[in-house]
Write a protein that binds this DNA or RNA. Structure first.
Lengths: 237, 237
DNA sequence: CGGGTATTTGATAGGGTTCAAAGCACGTGG
DNA sequence: CCACGTGCTTTGAACCCTATCAAATACCCG
């Protein structure tokens, strides 16, 4: 829960009362293991999930069995805030490793959005998620191979930095190469070669679920990465 | 404004009072011409835009001049609802043809979200936009060439159908091939060959800004299109 | 140590990009 | 009415990135 609050505070003022309201909203905690399904696609949703710890993949598979990871959730992310109005998710939420997830009923979320301050907090998180998706569309459309992968590492470095998970020593990223390939929209064979290229260029190393950026500026250049979309500055409300 | 209301009613019950509130919210109308910029990236936003008529592209260009169209806005879409909390957009809104745009100050939007019913209406629109993006990520990652283009036509047929623009005769789609290529993340040369393939397979024709689906089932099969994400059914609130 | 999974490498084919140029539609002015 | 300009579409050819198929190696866990 501290991670969630840390992320909120990094972008907006948060009063102590609001923080208390959030913390005491009556979260039910639950732990998932690697490859456990947290939310099934199409399933009727009655509560909203907050990731306290670990990593989650948003997984979509079409008729032909091709799997695409649409996005990654990290500690402090509201995983299915849109489910509150849509009542379901069209993709699957899968734990990428051991995960702690807290959930509250939709009804409680609706009560919370009665307060303008809490409403803004939730809206802001949804908006950030939206621009992250937009940036990823840009990356998938206009970057290739190495550039896309570099983008992933850049974004993760910053998103995980916000919640204190990424440090000088790097950060955990519990994805197999196959899974990262499903995320980047390429084959695992090709991904492997891209990783090799990044490693040999001494930009970033990635092995056994741990990533370490060796050359931040070089990596950003390779990805043509502009961090503006993450809205890392404080937002005036 | 009727298009907006039509779209809302297609997905949720809308009371007459709420409809009146929306209509009389004090919209300021303005007309834009082809390639006019409606919102500049990074610009401080003070009002929120609703597209009454026409088509808008969300345009993102990175340092190297490569342009990616992140999404398309059609009549009835709230174009920059996330700008209310973020205060800016990281992409540009460009009119793809003559457009009628209505706008209201952010302050008014915030007042409206005081009402639970209006709040849900706005949330739902934001959520739909989000799942449309997710579906496009899936398409960019896992479909190629012809499949991606077929997806665009499928989605447009349904989205424009909701607001009464797509009919048996087809629908307008004022994109040059270069622009559609920027949307699909490919070169205009390759796009041209994909369009040719779709045309010769008698699935869809597209010329001078007008698209006509010749074989809906065939087109859906080609795109492996599943319309579930558009949430076309009524949503229980 | 053994067996399964994940990573790495090789060889080949094909889809997509790139560069280049020709064809076409439309508007404008002489 | 035709010449000309402009922007969009279409086609061609060569090259490169990425997918595909296949196999070898490394790794982890029981």
């Amino acid at each position: 829960m501290d991670r969630f609050v840390a992320k909120l505070r990094s972008r907006q003022a948060l009063s102590n009362e609001d923080e208390a309201l959030l913390r005491d909203a009556g979260w039910a905690e639950r732990r998932y293991g690697r490859h456990d399904t947290i939310v099934r696609p199409g399933e009727a949703l009655t509560s909203c999930h907050l990731l306290l710890n670990g990593f989650v993949a948003r997984c979509h598979e079409d008729g032909s069995g091709a799997r695409q990871i649409i996005g990654l959730g990290v500690a402090g992310d509201l995983l299915d805030i849109h489910g509150v109005v849509l009542g379901r998710l069209d993709h699957e939420l899968v734990a990428l490793g051991p995960c702690d997830v807290a959930s509250i009923p939709h009804a409680r979320v609706r009560e919370m959005t009665g307060s303008p301050a809490l409403q803004k907090i939730i809206w802001l998180q949804a908006a950030i998620e939206h621009v992250i998706q937009a940036a990823w569309i840009q990356a998938l459309g206009r970057k290739r191979g190495v550039g896309k992968i570099a983008h992933i590492f850049c974004e993760m470095q910053l998103r995980l930095g916000l919640v204190g998970i990424a440090t000088r020593m790097g950060f955990p990223l519990p994805l197999s190469q196959q899974e990262m390939a499903d995320y980047a929209g390429m084959t695992h064979v090709h991904l492997n070669r891209c990783l090799k290229e990044l490693r040999e260029a001494r930009l970033v190393s990635f092995a056994s679920g741990w990533a370490k950026v060796e050359d931040w500026e070089g990596l950003k250049r390779m990805a043509r990465f502009d961090d503006g979309y993450l809205n890392l500055r404080l937002i005036d409300l």
